[in-house]
Amino acid sequence: MRYGMVIDLKTCIGCNACTMACKAEHATPAGIFYAKVLEKEVGKFPAARRIFLPVLCNHCENPICREVCPTGATYKRQDGIVLVDYDKCIGCRACMEACPYWARTYYDGDGAYYPGERTLFEEIKQNFPEGVVMKCNFCAHRVDQRVEPACVQTCPTDCRIFGDLDDPTSEVSRLVAERKGRQLLAEKGLNPSVYYIE
C-alpha cells in the first residue's frame, strides 16, 4: 500500500480551488500553505502563455526529511503517508533544509487571519503547537475514513487523482503508466508519490 497522487497538468486551470480547500480543511495559519499552485510564463508575446504547477508534499518513498529528523518526529506510515508528530518535533528545521521541494513551513505561533482577534473557526481548528514544522499530510484523517483528500475532492476539473500506487490496477497506477507520469526532481532519488501527467 502506497498512497499517491496524480496531477493532470493538461486540465489544471490554475484556479486555486485546491489551495483554498486545503486552507479550510487544515485551518493552516496565515502564511502557511500545504497546497499551492506555482505559475510562470513561457515564451514571448504573442506566443506566450502562463503555466501552472500545483505542488504539495511529495510523500516520498525515501523521505529525506525523515532521514535528517533528529527526534523521529517525521515518520512514514505503512500506507506511505509521511507525517510530523508535533509532540516530538523540536522545530530544528533540518527537514526544511533537506526537503528539495520546499514543502515544509516553520510555525512561529502567529497566524490568525484577522488582526487582533482569533475567529471561532480558528479557535476550534487552528491548534498547532508553536515552534513546529508543518506540511501536507495527504489528509490522512480523511483517508483513514476512506474519504479523499480535500484538494482532490474539490478540484473543479478533477485534475487530481488519489489512490494506491502499489496496486497496478488503480487509476493512479494506470495513469502513471499510460500517460508517462513524471515526478518532480526525480533525479534526487527520493521517489516522490506525486506524479504529473500532461
Partner: peptide
C-alpha cells in the same frame, strides 16, 4: 466540486 471562492467563504462568516 467547489472553487476557491466557495471554499474560502467560511472564514468571512467570522469576520470581526
Amino acid at each position: 466540486n467547489l472553487c476557491a471562492n466557495g471554499q474560502a467563504g467560511l472564514i468571512g462568516l467570522y469576520d470581526p
